[in-house]
Each structure stands twice: as structure tokens, then as C-alpha cells.
Design a binder for these strands. Structure first.
Lengths: 262, 262
DNA sequence: TCAAGAACGAGAGCAGTGCTCTTGACATCG
DNA sequence: CGATGTCAAGAGCACTGCTCTCGTTCTTGA
């Protein structure tokens, strides 16, 4: 984000950007080492050879430092997901889905404290500021693109036939469930009006052209993915699916089928 | 748990049990009001009119107090799930599944900080002690019973025919996927050896007689459920499935179908 | 019954935290 | 050159978890 030192700045501004970056780097180091709870402004300052009050010139409070780290974490995870999403040909939607899910898990396993920071319980009174929602959406956008590509592929494959109730994202309730013969994985219950609306809005935002029922199922897969990662990371799997590698692969596959990825 | 004052104790023991309970109650109040991070032994002591060091006679450290609260939270959630699981006739497996899921969500919404305590990021160096795993398993046990009942029902309904590869919970890989005609929701990929083993062990523990593939899918549903609740509680749904009531009902239904609940 | 001993509450104290305020040095710009 | 704004530093406040010591009180065993 704002970590590239602008060339045309005064020395003071460059020094400020530099120090801001160093503070974040040291804070990230402590975060990775001991978790968010143990992140101490004083310790960061100590490590950087400055006095604690100086930190407040750069981050007005501990929460602001944490927010910066949260944004970085979202961006880091988002970049990993995007890279994984482009690692395969656009048409290989199922392979891309698998790659993105695996990338998300690997990122979480490699950066458990960062993951806990963004997908664990939010810090006490902490309210996610506006600046976090865009980076937070990056992973969702990757999934949306895969869905959109899959939908477009299906439409092209069967030129004369519309995707079931897809055009307006607002199918008549109870009308588009018959038979699982057209790529829809299975007869699905009709979406409630509000849910259909939410799905349509989501499609408009990040997955143009994708039918609402597919979006709704993708939401399921989305929550399943991060639920699974959280369970693994937070130790909820001990005694059941631990180690979780094979269960993870199985679940990713099942969810791909659920959302109708070929 | 150990909150009922034993009758045949000395006055001192009764006073100790009483005070232990009061400390936990006040701590729970603070937890509900401000979250685990803000839970302060000193504040608890202050509120109880005692001096902070006295608390250490009852809980050797802050973590021990938190552990007690965690166990209580698991028990509270487990009790809610069990009650919901028994709110309907045993044969109504799908209705029971729905009831238990809804109960879990309602409990989480009513006790967000307690939920975050047990399903959010684990506190810094906190390692879940042995005493927590039994209460933590209560919800899983409820789900296991529903699965076991569903399996038994299916076996009784088709007396001459075994459930596919169910008897030993260890079906021959790649053998039981053909056709979705027997209650299995859909052709499913074969389980990997390790996953089949984990599922079989899990079945032995809490869901006797349930085929391994069903267990594996139930694990998916399990992680999906808590992933969904976490996303709702931790604000990951803002802008997408918020409010989440209808999405929740939809997802619960889809997961019931996934695990093959009629 | 009565003394030894365990359990207890109170208090002082240590090391640490986030954060505020003031002070004096320095760089930048008019 | 001088005014202005930025900066690091330090002292200090209120708070935290936790330890240790000190009398007191209750429990228990001889």
C-alpha cells in the first residue's frame, strides 16, 4: 500500500515513511512471534532503539498499528489467493478453485497469528474501519471471478440454452429446481426473497452473470473454507481430522461440486 | 459442573465453593460486557469487595479463570444443543439437525464473547487443557447421535439391503460411489485412506454404525456451521449476507442434504 | 480440649502496559 | 534570519498480572 517511498518528497517525509515501515515490520515480527495480544508498543520501540512515546508520532494508538497490520495481512492473503487463481488456465475452474483454497490454507498455516488477527475473534472493542474492507474483499473477488468464468463457460458450451434462471439473478421461487441434469449439482431449494436479493447484489459486485443460487452455494463454500481453516489452526480438530490435509482436500472437492464447478 | 455446594462439607469448604462461584459469575459478567481481553482479575476482585491477591487463592492465574469460563461456555452451548436435539422426535433427523444448528447460532448470538472465547482465536500462549475437551465434544456428540439415528433408520427402512459400505465404516475405495439412488445424496469421491481411518475412528467414538463417507461429509457440515456463525459474529458478512438469518437457514438445509439427512 | 497447621484476606511491591504532556533540539520554508 | 512545525526524549498516570509477607481464623488430629 503506502510503503513505497515517494521520490519527490522532502527528506523529512522520506524519513517518516521509512520509520513507519520499520515500525510495522518490527510489529509484524512480534505479532508472528507471540500473537496480537502480546504486541507491545513499548517493546517495538525498545527494539527499534527509540522511546515509546515516539511511536505515537506514527501510530496514534495501538489499535491503529493493529489496523495497519490487519490491512497488510488481508493484502498478503489476497495476493496469495490471486496468484493461485492465475496459476492455471482460466477455463480450469475447478483446478483454480482448488488452488485458491489450498493457497489460503497454506497462507494461514504459515502465518497463524496474522490469520487469527483477521479471521479470529476481533480484538476487544475493535471495530473494523473502512480501510480494511477493500483488502478483505480480495479473496472473495478471486472466488467471484472463478464463478463468473465458470458461468460464462457453461453458457458458451450450451449456446442455445440459458443457464437456469440466471439472467436476472432472481429466479422465480420453486421454479428452477427440477432435475440435476444441467450442471446444477442437485435439486436445490428455492432461495428466499432476501437471500436471492443478497446473492444478486453480490453477483453484481464481484461475480457478474452468476445465478443467485450459485452465489448462495458459493457463500456456503466460502464459510466452510474458513471455518475449516480456523478449526485446524485453533486446535478444534485434535482427535478428529488431525492432521487435516486429506480432509481439507476432500472438503474442497465437495464444495467445488456443491457450487457446480466442473 | 462443580457448582452445587456439597452438603457434607465444612463451613470453609462451602464458603470456598461459594466464593469460587461468585468469582466466576462476576468474571462471566465482565466477559459478556467487554470481552476476554478486558477481563481483569483486579476488577473482579474490586467488584467483589476483596483485594486482588485474594483471587489467587481460588484461581492460580488469569488463564485458569479463563479456562473455567471456557469450560462453562462449552457446557452452556452443549446443553443448548442437547436440548434442541431432543426437542423433536428421534426419527425427525433433519428437523433435529436444523434445531441443533439454530440453537448453536442463537447461543452464539446471545453470548458473543463466550463464543469468541471458545471458537475465536485462542488467547496468546493459551493451550487448551485436558479438562476442556470433554465439554467441547458435547455438540459433536449431539450431531453424532443424529447421524447414528439417521443411519439406523435407513437400515430399518430397507431391511434386506445394507447401507452402502456401512457395516465396517471402511468401504472399499471407489466402490460405493455409483448412483445416488440409495439415500446417498450424490456420487462422492472415494475417501483417502487416512481420512477413512479418521472418519471410522470418529464414528466409533460418537456415531456408531455411521459410514465413513457420511462422517466425512458431516465434518464438512460441522466446519461450515461454525465458520458461518463466526463470520456472522465477527463481522465478515457486512455487505454480503447481512442479515444472515435466511442464508443460515439455507445453508443448514443444504448441509443436511449433503450429509444425507432425509 | 487444645495446640499444630492449613487456609485465608489484606497489603505492599515488582515489572510491565497504553497513553499523555512537556521540554528542548532540529529541519523546513517564507 | 527567523518563525513554524516536526521530532525524540523523558517523566508521569493509571492500570495490569503476579508474588511475597504478615497476622488472623478455621480445621483437624492427638
Amino acid at each position: 500500500m503506502a510503503s513505497a517511498p515517494k521520490a519527490g518528497s522532502t527528506a523529512r517525509q522520506r524519513a517518516r515513511a521509512e520509520l513507519t515501515r520499520e515500525i510495522k515490520a518490527e510489529a509484524r515480527r512480534q505479532l508472528a512471534a507471540q500473537g496480537a495480544q502480546q504486541l507491545s508498543l513499548r517493546a517495538v520501540a525498545r527494539e527499534l532503539g527509540m522511546v515509546s512515546s515516539a511511536i505515537y508520532r506514527y501510530f496514534p494508538s495501538r489499535d491503529d498499528l493493529l489496523t495497519a497490520l490487519i490491512i497488510d495481512a488481508y493484502d498478503s492473503l489476497g495476493a496469495a489467493a490471486e496468484k493461485a487463481g492465475q496459476s492455471q488456465p482460466a477455463a480450469a475452474v475447478r483446478g483454480r478453485w482448488r488452488a485458491v483454497c489450498t493457497a489460503a490454507r497454506n497462507w494461514a498455516l504459515a502465518n497463524p497469528h496474522e490469520y487469527a488477527l483477521i479471521y479470529g475473534s476481533p480484538v476487544p472493542g475493535y471495530q473494523a474501519p473502512e480501510a480494511t474492507i477493500a483488502p478483505a474483499a480480495r479473496v472473495a473477488v478471486v472466488f467471484g471471478q472463478i464463478l463468473a468464468d465458470a458461468t460464462a463457460l457453461r453458457l458458451n458450451a450450451v449456446p442455445g440454452q440459458d443457464a437456469p434462471g440466471a439472467a436476472d439473478g432472481q429466479p422465480q421461487p420453486g421454479q428452477q429446481a427440477p432435475g440435476a441434469a444441467d450442471g446444477q449439482p442437485r435439486s436445490a431449494p428455492a432461495l428466499s426473497p432476501l437471500l436471492a436479493l443478497q446473492a444478486a447484489a453480490l453477483a453484481d459486485a464481484i461475480a457478474p452473470g452468476v445465478p443467485a443460487p450459485v452465489i448462495a452455494r458459493a457463500l456456503i463454500a466460502w464459510t466452510q473454507l474458513f471455518g475449516m481453516i480456523s478449526f485446524e489452526l485453533f486446535g478444534q480438530f485434535v482427535g478428529s481430522a488431525d492432521p487435516a490435509d486429506e480432509f481439507f482436500a476432500y472438503a474442497v472437492d465437495q464444495m467445488a461440486t456443491l457450487v457446480g464447478l466442473d
